[in-house]
Design a protein around this nucleic acid. Structure first.
Lengths: 208, 208
DNA sequence: GTCTATAGGCAGATAGAC
DNA sequence: GTCTATCTGCCTATAGAC
């Protein structure tokens, strides 16, 4: 049969990616070593080099897989949710799931490490944010056209704030070990778009 | 006289902190070494160990000084700006100044590295966020009482979103090398508090 | 205060056996 | 595919001279 390995459930390359991914998300790209991955999988670093030429290539593979998985998740949201506001909530929940695992967003973490990354990894990180902002921007445009979402300026600007706001909420929530903290910030970020706050002693909109 | 040194304008300890601070803000706590600091100052790592027992102690000193400087800046804002909305803008400008220097917020960066930090550094990072959120929360409460700021929920919750939102905006803007990107996100974060958006075909507030 | 010298460890990486 | 063995280099840290 097609799987004659003696260790692990999945193929070694996937297991390496799994472990390395978690290590990057928890410790940062400069906070783990080939040795860490190898010892966790009970193999040697030489075996790692067989599957990934070096740490840079491993990093590239990490972002590629993470981005693809995220893209899949966005596709699923598109399928299951029609309402833009619900889509945004589902989007924020993707981040929440990562945080619940005591992890930072892979690319948020790599954004912190950005200046130390090899060029191909840098490009892949930026691509991740571009893709996410494009998707969120599309949802926002749709919602505005529909009348269910309200915001000023361009959809891509607003999308950029949503994405970076969620990244920041994760970043700061992790030291507190507090997912509620993230959820409060995430709701608040989206609340500004999904419903207009009741006004407080303000001139009527006629002035606008 | 009180300064008989042969190198540098300031005392060595301060110069070490200056260099180390920039390195942490640009490369992260695990992205620089004692050797990097030493070679930049054209001294040896042994000299560094004279001033700071180890990297952990250097890190603690870094956060302490950064926090104190930030607290000073907040005090200055309190002196010069009376209007809560202006205070918030001035607050965001503190972050902008850091970003213009191609740096991440020190504690934002350390939040990413959090899981790899020694305990005393962790505590100091959380304290930094607590202090910032407390100050922003105070501004928000004042603004709401005054009627110049509008937001739902607790001031501390809203403050938490502002702080983490600004951190995230920095985090994501840095890979793009784009301060405009930060400014757009920062304005949008604050816009939700400083003026209520004009409503779009919505049921009147009577339903709420 | 800063140096030289050095320790001991771990980093990423490679050659070659099996 | 995975191993052993090994390399080179850098890491943090310390001892002791000046």
């Amino acid at each position: 049969m097609a799987r004659g390995r003696q260790r692990g459930e999945a193929d070694t390359a996937s297991e390496i990616l799994d472990v390395a991914e978690r290590l990057v998300q928890v410790r940062g790209f400069n906070g783990f070593s080939y040795g860490d991955v190898a010892s966790e999988l009970e193999i040697t670093t030489a075996a790692l080099h067989y599957h990934f030429a070096g740490k840079a290539e491993l990093g590239e593979a990490l972002i590629e897989r993470y981005g693809a998985r995220f893209a899949d998740a966005l596709g699923e949201i598109d399928q299951h949710d029609a309402d833009p506001a619900q889509k945004l909530e589902a989007y924020a929940d993707l981040y929440l799931d990562v945080l619940r695992d005591h992890r930072m967003c892979l690319c948020g973490m790599l954004a912190a490490d950005y200046d130390t990354l090899p060029k191909p990894m840098r490009n892949a990180v930026v691509r991740f944010f571009d893709d996410n902002e494009a998707w969120v921007g599309g949802v926002l445009e749709h919602g505005r056209a529909e009348g269910t979402l309200q915001f000023t300026g361009s959809a891509s600007d607003a999308a950029q704030m949503i994405v970076s706001g969620l990244e920041g909420a994760m970043l700061v929530a992790r030291p507190y070990g507090d997912t509620d903290r993230f959820q409060a910030a995430a709701s608040r970020l989206l609340a500004g778009l999904t419903h207009t706050p009741r006004r407080r002693r303000r001139k009527p909109a006629s002035l606008a």
